[in-house]
């Protein structure tokens, strides 16, 4: 599923997600060179470093929530999961965004996932 793609995973991302990425053919890389940047916590130190980087300021380093990778698993396709909805913005602007848009998709996903786990 992830063949030919490189990703960086924050330390806040669970090992299971990283393993799934690799098992589906994805490669791992440093945060400066990876095609995809994944984090589960915008306020973790390694992720904040990205928000402070020149790449981010120049709009060349969007961080996605690692729940995107988990969401691809049951669907067995990257084309049916809208990655553009999994943007993980800096922690300091998340609250002002919640006022305008409600919950982020990666927050609702967590609920759905845990309900699925209960049912199975």
């Amino acid at each position: 599923m992830f063949k030919g793609k490189t990703a960086w995973f924050s330390g806040s991302v669970g090992q299971g997600v990283t393993s799934f990425w690799v098992s589906e053919g994805g490669a791992l890389s440093s945060w400066r060179t990876a095609d995809y940047l994944f984090s589960a916590d915008a306020s973790s130190e390694d992720t904040e470093r990205i928000y402070e980087s020149e790449d981010y300021v120049e709009n060349r380093a969007t961080v996605f929530h690692s729940n995107f990778v988990s969401a691809c698993k049951p669907r067995q396709s990257v084309k049916s999961v809208p990655i553009g909805h999994y943007v993980l913005p800096p922690a300091s602007i998340q609250n002002e965004l919640r006022v305008l848009i409600g919950r982020f998709i990666w927050e609702t996903d967590e609920q759905v996932m845990s309900e699925e786990q209960i049912n199975t």
Partner: peptide, 28 residues
């Protein structure tokens, strides 16, 4: 475009440019 383009069409490096080149964005 930010809603409909999937993983093979944009990544962390190009997402910003994709949104910017889009004539309008959805509310989100």
């Amino acid at each position: 475009a930010g809603c409909v383009k999937h993983m093979n069409e944009m990544d962390s490096r190009s997402f910003g440019a994709v949104l910017r080149s889009c004539r309008f964005q959805c509310d989100f």
